[in-house]
Amino acid sequence: MKIIIADDSEVIRIIIEKGIKLIGYDALNANNGHKVLELLEKNIKEIALVLLDWNMPGLNGLEVLKTMKGDERFSSIPVLMVSTESEESKISKVYEAGAAGYLAKPFEAEELNNLIKKTLS
């Protein structure tokens, strides 16, 4: 199964990709929100989870999350938000929009992998 990693930073995508391979997942990479929706359309049956950065150019992470939860094809796919936005009010918005979890940057690979395993268990 695959995990979509959406972050406008290539360095962050590489760090996360290395981490998720250790727990048995392959990565599909997106550097903006529109690309996430494209990848979902093309690979819907293989996607186990979506990791979204909040601040991305174009369609941001929260907008992607809302779009996914409003589309019955994608609404059951769990979404984790990984972002520098870490204020309580912002985190509440993420959960209200239907995210399965939230992780603030900076993070250690192990923290993210534990959250992924917990979400998919």
């Binding site: 930073s9 360095v11 520098t84 870490s86 309580e88 940057k105 900076p106």
Partner: peptide, 23 residues
């Protein structure tokens, strides 16, 4: 390119985590 990208992400994380502390 990775250095440019990574340095941008470092300042993003420093400022982002500090933003929460200054609410």
């Amino acid at each position: 390119e990775l250095i440019h990208d990574g340095v941008g992400e470092i300042i993003n994380m420093i400022a982002g985590s500090t933003k929460k502390n200054l609410v």
